[in-house]
Design a protein around this nucleic acid. Structure first.
Lengths: 253, 253
DNA sequence: CGGGATCTTGAGCAGGTTCAAATGCTGTGG
DNA sequence: CCACAGCATTTGAACCTGCTCAAGATCCCG
């Protein structure tokens, strides 16, 4: 957590807003709110706007929805702490989880085309978000070129992530899927200066299975197998990875 | 094709450019180049720019690549006629097709985050594209707000399409997959004023299977089954759909 | 401390894959 | 213009990965 202080720009409007919840927003180097903050710092614009953005914060409890399918797009959401799953539904109610999201990530940009949400976002644990009204965001991207670029990058990144998931769902078998998933988490934690080899999962086995397109039971069996093979150790939702290289071989990019 | 003339705005810079290849670009109501053209028409900007965009056209033959994985992003591509498949690869060479693209669609925007291509685009039949250099596009989005919006919408739409494919890959069985695929094609043809019930496929059974995450043989078997059940008739790559409603029931959204 | 949720493991089953082979197009070169 | 090679499509049969159903174990929240 010392990293937070180092990364926070001293002259930042975020720093001026001056509560440590806001500070936590700049812990994410490569996405969401940090991007917005950096964009603002990099140019001489009216500094009252960013404060508007980070002020409107809300707390959600496990199981609550940030937004629903079909709901008109009014705001996008930046996760300050906690975690969220997003998913889509078949018309007979089957669910496919399309992503797990953590602090610093931005949700809702995918709804821009349709003007309403086509996926749903459910909170996995107690989670704090900032709600950024879409019209505020529009004012921003009008005035600040780097915010426009940032938004394009975020959406582009989402497309890349989705491509990886499609590759997994279409072409990988069960052990490749779980290995890919664990490595992807590991890398995300590493980028945030958390341990890449020891972390705990905020989602259930059932959610993991749903996301990976395999049954909950298969997830368990794969965990057991990996454990028997000395690749990792699990204790409920606590995971410790022992051999990233071997895991990476199994995952097959 | 009379629709082309009706849809082409009379004062359009595109019309002034005055060759019928350019005209074909405005046949697509809801995406890509038509979007760019409309954006330009709607505001009073330097009209020489759009001509630059639509001038730089190239012809590709079946099997050729618009761009490769790892190649730096220099241009995006607008399809004028023909069709293209895009795909990603595992590091041991397995391929997952992520989309089939036809006239009016824009390819390459997904590479903005990484600045290089993470997928590859291969032409399925003789195909004409315009190559739009990325720096030209940047000048545009700087000057023309509606082009910015259009780019966001296109990327957002790609996210929506990918979500649908993830739902299919993760949660649907073989007959649901093929039915979903056929209906999606049908709707796309309908929007372009082609027959929604009789069309021919530019991709092989193998490509369809790869896209849908099932084996080529399974695609054949499903086609045969649908045919036996009176849902459709196929003659090689020519398809005639007899019962869109029933197909829609099978597809399950 | 109790009860529902979550996780784990087993056993049988099934949908879809893989391998194999026959048939039918297509376009290419002579 | 035709023959032929190579690719695409179709169908059959055996097999296998992962699913479903079921039951027990463990955890965690109130």
């Amino acid at each position: 957590m010392t990293a937070v202080v180092q990364m926070m720009p001293s002259e930042s409007v975020v720093a001026r807003a001056a509560d440590n919840e806001v500070c936590s927003l700049v812990t994410c180097k490569d996405c969401g709110i940090y991007g917005l903050c950096r964009a603002v710092n990099g140019s001489d614009v009216d500094l009252r706007l960013p404060e508007t953005i980070v002020r409107n914060r809300r707390l959600f409890k496990r199981g609550e929805l940030l937004y629903r399918i079909g709901e008109p797009l009014r705001s996008i959401y930046a996760i300050r702490c906690g975690s969220v799953k997003t998913y889509v539904l078949t018309n007979d109610g089957r669910m496919q989880i399309t992503g797990f999201h953590v602090a610093g990530e931005l949700l809702g940009l995918g709804a821009i085309a349709a003007n309403y949400f086509t996926n749903e976002a459910m909170v996995l644990e107690t989670t704090m978000v900032c709600e950024v009204p879409i019209d505020v965001l529009e004012v921003y991207s009008e005035e600040i070129p780097s915010i426009r670029q940032q938004m394009l990058k975020i959406m582009s990144q989402e497309i890349l992530d989705n491509q990886e998931l499609m590759l997994l769902l279409g072409k990988k078998n069960a052990d490749e899927r779980l290995a890919t998933f664990l490595l992807s988490l590991s890398r995300r934690f590493q980028r945030r200066n958390y341990s890449p080899t020891k972390f705990n999962l905020s989602m259930s086995r059932s959610d993991i299975g749903n996301y990976l397109g395999i049954a909950e039971e298969t997830v368990c069996r794969m965990f057991t197998r990996f454990q028997n093979e000395g690749l990792l150790a699990t204790e409920r939702r606590q995971v410790q990875l022992h051999d990233l290289d071997r895991l990476s071989n199994i995952a097959r990019g």
